[in-house]
Design a binder for these strands. Structure first.
Lengths: 252, 252
DNA sequence: CGCCGACTTGACACCAATCAAGATAAGTGG
DNA sequence: CCACTTATCTTGATTGGTGTCAAGTCGGCG
């Protein structure tokens, strides 16, 4: 219900209890903002592309951008490189997300698969034509773009203000929004990417991620049944960690 | 060592020599993506609002969002709060930028003036109507939103991968894109906001910003004629700092 | 000219990056 | 199915960057 800080004043945030699972609102999948007609039209001009191997490049920064992509199945990472070899993952794409942001005709970041994945590949040329025929389409794409902008802004807050532990908790909260990963009944979360990807998404190192997981487990907030499969023991504690101060037993 | 990413890296990032001044492409002002007709129509439904004092709230996170704003004159900061009192500045708005991002009818972040500023205040209700009459308008707003998304992604890279010194250099590069602030002939940059705002934008503290300025000056890369007015002595050095490794005399 | 807020600098503690090594999980071929 | 191989993950030790506290300087405005 998103009642979050409706504080009208720029000073002093209103601290309000939010549940862990409401920490993030769900970004709508593209097919939730498109009309059925738009979806069929899009499919008509799209080519389905399948990727078997993990870590396959879909496109890379600087390449000429002839296509917009919509993810159908699987998991894709969008990232940029630093000149010194650093990699910043900007977002993970889930089924229904679209990507292939370009500027001056070239992709501004890279995308490759984390899982086996299948995508709809839409020629930008045809897309432009379609937008003329379907006058609502640009508006619906705008809605999606604005949501992505929001997501990026949230991540700016996380990277700019949170320490590694809190970044990880925030990330876990995001994952929990997707029932593909989170089994709400058993409170078990399946983490679909490796520590490297998490680290590069959160602007830190795999070791720091491992340590943060370790601390969460020592504090009995989670339990790792395997590195990629964790049980969330105390959602309230997690929520407090994500939003506010460590509530209690902050480890000796 | 970070060799373990399963990044296919068939096409590493196309590293292209870029000068300091080309470090960032210019985000188009809103009136550069709108047709003259759209601009007049927008002005018809807009109310001009003037803010004399600095630090005045335009709107705050959580308030009901009835308006979209376009900045006409001055400088505005967009930010979010952490539950613990931290503030993350998400973007600085310059004349021609628009802001007032909402979700479920409420602003998702806060905006207030840094300078005296004047804004166009556009009722969202009227805007929606206008979008029906001007079918191109949603597309043009999409173009602007995508640019903002790009800017946010660049900032994610900066916050996630760069140390404080590089963050500051990157920020100075951004400022240099605007001739209101940068006198290209004299190589003098006027910094329009205080250290607090810079720090909260770069996810650090005023002290660290001051230290970074100090280091740049000791290395004879800049010269502070006043805290808000600096001379850029060596653009090449700055560029190398922004993109790659500290080129030489990294201070003992 | 004098005050006050903005800015800078120093000292210190702490978080996190890095290097190094070991443990676990996953994949492969016999 | 098991042994082997390799990638992934975790943990420890060390170092460096940066947040924090404290004090001092500077600059702009009345």
């Amino acid at each position: 219900m998103r009642t979050l800080h409706d504080n009208p004043k720029p000073t002093g945030p209103v601290i309000r209890a939010r549940s862990f699972l409401e920490a993030r609102e769900r970004v709508p999948k593209i097919y939730n903002v498109l009309t059925p007609e738009e979806q069929t039209q899009l499919r008509r001009i799209a080519v389905i592309e399948e990727f078997r191997a993990t870590g396959t490049a879909i496109f890379a920064e600087g390449e000429k951008a002839h296509f917009l992509y919509i993810l159908d199945k699987g998991l894709v990472r969008i990232y940029s490189h630093t000149e010194r070899g650093g990699r910043q993952i900007l977002a993970f794409m889930l089924p229904g997300d679209f990507f292939g942001l370009a500027e001056e005709g070239r992709y501004v970041n890279s995308a490759d698969t984390i899982n086996a994945a299948t995508v709809y590949r839409i020629p930008t040329r045809d897309l432009r034509r379609l937008m003329l025929r379907e006058p609502q389409l640009p508006f619906h794409l705008l809605v999606k773009a604005v949501h992505d902008l929001r997501a990026a802004q949230r991540q700016l807050l996380v990277l700019g203000q949170h320490d590694v532990l809190r970044r990880l908790v925030s990330f876990l909260a995001d994952l929990c929004q997707h029932e593909d990963f989170f089994d709400a009944d058993r409170q078990v979360l399946r983490i679909p990417m490796n520590r490297f990807d998490i680290a590069d998404y959160l602007g830190t190192s795999t070791e720091s991620i491992a340590r943060a997981f370790g601390k969460l487990e020592r504090d009995k907030i989670i339990k790792r049944s395997s590195p990629r499969r964790i049980e969330l023991l105390q959602l309230e504690q997690l929520a407090r960690l994500a939003h506010g101060r460590p509530p209690s037993n902050t480890e000796d």
